[in-house]
Simulated scan of single mutants.
Amino acid sequence: MTGLYIAIGVIAVLVLAWILLRSSKSSRSARPPARELQDLPIDSAALTAIYASLGANKRVLAIKQLRQATGLGLADAKYLTEAIAAGHRPPERGIGLAQPSLADRARGLRRQGREADAIRLVRDETGMGDPEAAKFVRSLD
């Protein structure tokens, strides 16, 4: 009889572990898209076509155009297209358009409370070490 209780207890623990494992996997896969997507520069011609498609209520076409212009996956492109439709204006990339300087981009990230991202940006684009990049970012006002 004791063996039966032990077997039932082991099965109950295994079922509970399986349920917890499945719920943690589903919460990881339902992650919100990266915040950096909204800062992704998009070619000005592609952005014009995306706005036209959204204006004509052709969201699927707008998502396809965004994927072609940026190389994003379907979920990220859908998220960004929905943000654009809701009024978000991504930075434009194109011939003759002035790109913000490294200092301006790092300053913008810092103002958003994303200092670690700003330090990483400076480090990646300049080759500075972490201490130097952090000093540079913290000197921006």
Results as ranks from 00 to 15, higher is better:
residue 2 T to L: 12
residue 2 T to I: 14
residue 3 G to E: 10
residue 7 A to P: 00
residue 7 A to L: 11
residue 8 I to N: 01
residue 10 V to Q: 01
residue 12 A to M: 05
residue 14 L to N: 09
residue 15 V to S: 03
residue 17 A to M: 10
residue 19 I to C: 06
residue 21 L to K: 13
residue 23 S to F: 10
residue 28 R to P: 10
residue 30 A to C: 02
residue 32 P to I: 03
residue 33 P to T: 02
residue 34 A to W: 04
residue 34 A to S: 15
residue 36 E to K: 09
residue 37 L to Y: 04
residue 37 L to S: 04
residue 41 P to N: 11
residue 44 S to D: 09
residue 44 S to E: 08
residue 45 A to M: 14
residue 46 A to Q: 00
residue 46 A to C: 08
residue 47 L to I: 07
residue 48 T to P: 04
residue 49 A to M: 07
residue 49 A to V: 08
residue 53 S to G: 05
residue 58 K to H: 03
residue 59 R to S: 04
residue 63 I to R: 01
residue 64 K to C: 01
residue 68 Q to R: 07
residue 69 A to C: 02
residue 69 A to M: 03
residue 69 A to N: 02
residue 69 A to S: 02
residue 71 G to I: 06
residue 72 L to M: 10
residue 73 G to F: 11
residue 74 L to N: 13
residue 75 A to I: 06
residue 76 D to L: 00
residue 76 D to S: 07
residue 77 A to S: 03
residue 80 L to D: 02
residue 80 L to I: 11
residue 81 T to R: 02
residue 82 E to Y: 11
residue 83 A to W: 06
residue 85 A to F: 00
residue 85 A to K: 11
residue 86 A to P: 06
residue 90 P to N: 11
residue 90 P to G: 05
residue 91 P to I: 04
residue 91 P to D: 11
residue 93 R to G: 03
residue 93 R to N: 08
residue 94 G to N: 11
residue 96 G to L: 14
residue 97 L to I: 12
residue 97 L to P: 07
residue 97 L to Q: 11
residue 100 P to M: 08
residue 101 S to Q: 10
residue 101 S to M: 01
residue 104 D to H: 08
residue 104 D to S: 07
residue 106 A to Y: 02
residue 106 A to S: 09
residue 107 R to E: 14
residue 111 R to M: 14
residue 113 G to R: 12
residue 120 R to F: 01
residue 120 R to A: 09
residue 120 R to T: 03
residue 122 V to H: 02
residue 125 E to H: 00
residue 127 G to T: 00
residue 127 G to K: 05
residue 129 G to E: 10
residue 134 A to N: 01
residue 136 F to W: 09
residue 138 R to H: 15
residue 141 D to E: 15
